[in-house]
Design a protein around this nucleic acid. Structure first.
Lengths: 188, 188
DNA sequence: ACATTGCCATAACGCTTGTTATGTGAATGG
DNA sequence: CCATTCACATAACAAGCGTTATGGCAATGT
């Protein structure tokens, strides 16, 4: 079911997987969209309420939260696959799109708190926590996508290694003189 | 066309957008998949052969390459939207999946060369160029996705700012003693 | 000027889709 | 113990899909 993609997701396929028929589905869901919405909600609830890592406070807590996102286990791979596949539909529907944007912003807020805590402990250099949290989210998001496309190149160990390298660069103090920050990004 | 998503992509819709009918399409493409494949190839060729930024060597060149990926213009937004939407189909089809993985690895190689050049110039600290390139790719990839979902929160200026902040952290030397690299990532 | 070929619109076909209607056996309640 | 309701399978439906004929018009070659 997680393997056939959103495009090939049909009521009859779902029913067959359940060992039932379309009658069951239409009995409980008024429409297909309702079913999909419920399924995505269920996926989200499950990922929220599943056991989370908790190895420490501050930077360790931030690392835990990021590790919880990565496709390190078969179930996490499935979840992330469904999640990425849903982006097509989400980007097509403005309502869904804003909903996704809100959820991602919430996720950034959660990370931001942990960043701030790590800063308070002196484990991270000062700087806008929201900014740093956003960067961490981007990094993990990109890693998720790449790991889904090429699991052989990004086994769990490599994913953790890459994440830790990223966190290591964060712990180092930035040198504000090296980069040209005033360039507006033109110059093509 | 870029706005209706892969799911709602139909031969008749494409034909209508072209001011033609399905007859034209079937005359030039044996099947719908061939058309989609051609369209994606065309998109790739266009993004490859479009004018690229070139503001300097070393770190600036790396920055240029990353800026070229970001959805900073309406056309780049459309390209990225189509691209992200195609992930659903790509993840469902193993052949497409490996093809995508290969392309992303190629992209990382290109970035890796620029990282190495920047290191030679002393603009980036030593370390595996492929590793650093991968991190940069992840960051940009995640930023792309977020910018697509929430363009208001990530206008071009903010995207450039976030990227530059990321590059700034790269330029700083990492402190290998702060992070626990031996933790295999467990502890749930 | 005529035959021929290529381009593409038109129309039809078979199939699958989401949805709706109908039936049926089991559970439930008085 | 019967009536009623519920849960679901079965079947049918219109709509839309990709694909496949078919036909005509224009360009081309002789």
């Amino acid at each position: 079911m997680a393997t056939r993609g959103f495009a090939g997701l049909t009521l009859r396929a779902v029913a067959a997987e359940l060992g039932a028929t379309t009658g069951l589905l239409t009995h409980y869901f008024p429409t297909k969209n309702a079913l999909v919405a419920y399924a995505l909600d269920l996926l989200e609830q499950r990922t929220i309420s599943r056991p989370r890592r908790h190895t420490g406070e501050g930077l360790a807590a931030l690392r835990d939260a990021l590790l919880d996102i990565l496709p390190l286990t078969p179930e996490a791979i499935d979840s992330n696959r469904i999640w990425v596949s849903s982006w097509d539909a989400a980007l097509s529907d403005p309502a869904l799109s804003t909903d996704y944007a809100r959820k991602y912003a919430q996720s950034r807020n959660g990370l931001s708190e942990r960043v701030a805590a790590a800063q308070k402990l002196g484990e991270l250099p000062p700087g806008d926590p929201a900014h740093i949290a956003a960067g961490a989210q981007f990094f993990v998001l990109g890693l998720v996508v790449q790991a889904l496309f090429d699991p052989a190149a990004f086994p769990p160990q490599r994913q953790v290694e890459l994440l830790d390298d990223y966190l290591a660069t964060l712990t180092a103090r930035t040198d504000p003189t090296t980069i040209t920050r005033d360039d507006p990004g033109g110059g093509l």
